[in-house]
Design a protein around this nucleic acid. Sequence first.
DNA 1: AGCTCTTATGAATCATTGA
DNA 2: GTCAATGATTCATAAGAGC
Lengths: 287, 287
Amino acid sequence: MRLQENKIHTGDCEIVLKDYPDDFFDLIVTSPPYADSRKNTYGGIPPNEYVEWFLKKSEQFLRVLKPTGTFILNIKEKVEKGERHTYVLELILALRQQGWLWTEEFIWHKKNCHPGKWPNRFRDAWERCLQFNKNRQFNMYQESVMVPMGQWAATRLKKLGKNDVVRFDSQVGSGFGKNIANWVGRDKAYPSNVLHLATETGNRNHSAAFPNALPEWFIKLFTLEGDWVLDPFVGSGTTCIVAQELGRNSVGIDVLPEYTDMAAEQLQPDEALLFDGKGTYETRRKK
Amino acid sequence: MRLQENKIHTGDCEIVLKDYPDDFFDLIVTSPPYADSRKNTYGGIPPNEYVEWFLKKSEQFLRVLKPTGTFILNIKEKVEKGERHTYVLELILALRQQGWLWTEEFIWHKKNCHPGKWPNRFRDAWERCLQFNKNRQFNMYQESVMVPMGQWAATRLKKLGKNDVVRFDSQVGSGFGKNIANWVGRDKAYPSNVLHLATETGNRNHSAAFPNALPEWFIKLFTLEGDWVLDPFVGSGTTCIVAQELGRNSVGIDVLPEYTDMAAEQLQPDEALLFDGKGTYETRRKK
DNA sequence: AGCTCTTATGAATCATTGA
DNA sequence: GTCAATGATTCATAAGAGC
């Protein structure tokens, strides 16, 4: 029997995290508000103030992350006056100065990116998932994200109509349709540092929800059951919900009560209680 | 009848390009030697000297590129001591200081790399294709790289019935669907900024050979027939060969005679001659 | 259950209009 | 003149409806 905890705090993560001890979390995975976006929530941080704004938060992240832990940052720079802004590049350099190791950059390929047509630009179909660590040695459980090929083929291929196969081919150009027979026999699919996921449409009221599959992949890859996961910009709670489903403990923080209320509601309420007077929710579950 | 020229120079592009006038090329597309690689060729530029080394070349690129031209830089930072090196990020920032606009970053997703096994890392399945321009206004021919849309259009547009008219009207509010003609027969969509190309297996002796499809895509996108394409690190000549096949004039430069000899041989030798005494090949073809 | 078809909608970007 | 708000453009996906 294990006690599983999933907490949601309302507040600025920079402040809230001060109540957490050093070396506490196994994984931090988050999608912070991008520069100039989510103005109603975070005030729309201007691009040229973004690095400074972020470093104060990440200083806490660095403190509360275990030496063997990992920090995954999902972010993408915007276009301004026809040019890609450089604040993300500068952020990477600044985080290294702060003591982080820039271990890897995963690409999230957004298969269903926003449509649009412009005279000198195509649709933006990818985002960065930057991996930072405190040490060269960190925990990574690669086997957990290897997809069993047989099962995948059985469940997934069945759902795919002919159209889907043709479509998939034309987009990814994988020759997938032609080679189905080859795939069925295989045991495992080896992942790379490119993730092909669709953004989730509909449901949430959160303006910037990433799909469940994104935190799920990183939680599986970098944590075990019972480990602690933090999302300091949790929004509508995707990370915590996924963490709970996967049997991980989690802490989610966001400044906007509308989000944290929503997140708290979605967590399995085996025991859901207002943890303190400041809008902190906690959920305990016996497994 | 048009005279098509495809030249290969042996030498350092920084020097060779001084013989070319300002505002000459429509496109520069290249895959430079990465830091610490191709040691026998370029001496294996150390990562921390890479930016400085590159800026002297790109100064020439900036000069010889037309104001409406584009510079595509295919590059990926290496891993050093478990960490991604930052010289590519620093190069982007430095190129902006030099006067370039960082217009876009395309992702080349390498579909077919083989599973690798590292304890802390998955196989690297993507590279950056950085787009730089001299001005916000540049030539771009988007239609030339459109991709098949998939079954959606084929089934959907054949039927083009009342629903479509209603939908069109309700969205645009324009009364009759006067622009439905635009949709009829449309089976192609504009691509995104993620390119799915397989790496080419085998053949070339060039250590950093990119697949034909990569320069081909950018040549189609940014040039017309008769335009001038430059690859200042041409290696075994991929860029020039593709350019010739597409009816573009091209100039390829590399320091290593083994490469430039190979490249010159592969160019269609309607007229291939040693252009001057310094190892410059020129190929002319009447179309 | 399996398919096909329909519908809504996204961390988008740019040009234009309005304050 | 600068900045903010609005409209037009456009396509992959999931969910839902219908057969």
